[in-house]
């Protein structure tokens, strides 16, 4: 393979692998801006992955997407009910939501696909080339020969920005995340805003899980999200809770993951493949350490809405 072909392959793989992370991280950005740190996002992605697989197994990727969004919403609703309305600790509650998702998806997958599980013939989302843009050298095949969910991700970057910074809802959401007591005094229904933010986050995490199944892996396996939800949380920190920054950070993590393919293609022996497997998680740790000091989390993040922040 020529160097160009390898580079383009690496770039396209980066964008493809970054898509689930981008979708989930944009959702988590909205959720965290409202003050809800959702560790259940991993469970929402897993639910979305299963929903997509179940729908696609019926022969329709669209049904799969709908089921994925529904699964993500259910996971986020559970977290919101317990931590926003029940005022339980967000972090532990989110861990529990993820555990529940592992159990429930394991059971449903066994029921739907039998013990064989893998090797399903799913209706996946094939790459679609964007007219004109797809013909640009290098940039075209990297950015514009992707699945529809990747294009949805592109659109969601400005849309999320607009929602957060240019709408009344976004203002109230951010107020609920920064200073819940003051927001309430100003007449904002803090818990409803937080719930809405968490639900949006859940829906996007569900779509992220769907893109993992429909545009990347093509099948469902137990615990297949493998911590991508947690990486999305690190991406939000690295992206400074801003949609643009989050998109760049997601791309960085996509590249770290796609490096495995590059190493395989260029035949760099000697590097244990487990090191490449661990690379995105190690990168996330470095990202967390380096992001601190330059960025500030919403002051009311992971706090109860009655607490002074």
């Amino acid at each position: 393979m020529s160097d160009d072909a390898i580079l383009i392959g690496f770039g396209a793989a980066t964008v493809r692998v970054a898509t689930p992370l981008l979708l989930a991280a944009l959702g988590e950005t909205v959720s965290e801006r409202g003050g809800v740190l959702n560790l259940g996002i991993e469970g929402a992605m897993l639910g979305g992955a299963l929903g997509a697989a179940v729908g696609a197994a019926q022969g329709s990727a669209v049904v799969g997407l709908a089921l994925a969004v529904a699964a993500g919403l259910v996971a986020a609703l559970l977290l919101a009910a317990v931590s926003v309305w029940g005022r339980a600790d967000q972090i532990i509650a989110g861990t529990a939501v993820t555990l529940a998702a592992v159990g429930v998806t394991g059971l449903v997958a066994q029921r739907t696909f039998g013990s064989a599980g893998a090797g399903l013939e799913l209706a996946t989302l094939q790459p679609v080339e964007v007219p004109l843009l797809g013909a640009i050298p290098v940039v075209g095949p990297v950015l514009f020969r992707q699945s529809l969910l990747t294009y949805l991700g592109y659109l969601l970057i400005p849309l999320t920005w607009w929602l957060l910074y240019r709408t009344r809802f976004g203002l109230e959401l951010r107020a609920s995340g920064e200073a819940p007591t003051s927001a309430r005094a100003a007449g904002v229904a803090v818990r409803w805003r937080r719930t809405a933010g968490a639900l949006l986050g859940g829906a996007l995490a569900g779509l992220g899980g769907a893109s993992l199944v429909l545009a990347q892996v093509g099948t469902f396996t137990e615990k297949m999200t493998a911590g991508r939800g947690f990486i999305a949380i690190a991406i939000v920190v690295l992206g400074r809770w801003h949609p643009g920054g989050v998109a760049l950070a997601a791309l960085l993590f996509g590249a770290a993951t796609a490096l495995q393919y590059l190493v395989q293609a260029s035949g760099l022996g000697g590097v244990p493949w487990q090191l490449l497997l661990a690379l995105p998680y190690l990168l996330a740790l470095v990202a967390l350490a380096s992001a601190v000091g330059r960025a500030r989390a919403p002051a009311g993040l992971a706090r109860d809405d009655q607490e002074e922040s």
């Binding site: 005022r87 339980a88 600790d89 529990a96 137990e222």
Partner: peptide, 26 residues
């Protein structure tokens, strides 16, 4: 023939119930 991951459901319920039953009030 019930997958062992099913126990995670019990764990999740226990965690959520204990969080709600023992949370701070005020």
């Amino acid at each position: 023939g019930i997958p062992a991951v099913a126990v995670h459901v019990v764990q999740a319920v226990v965690i959520l119930v204990m969080l709600l039953a023992t949370r701070r009030r005020g």
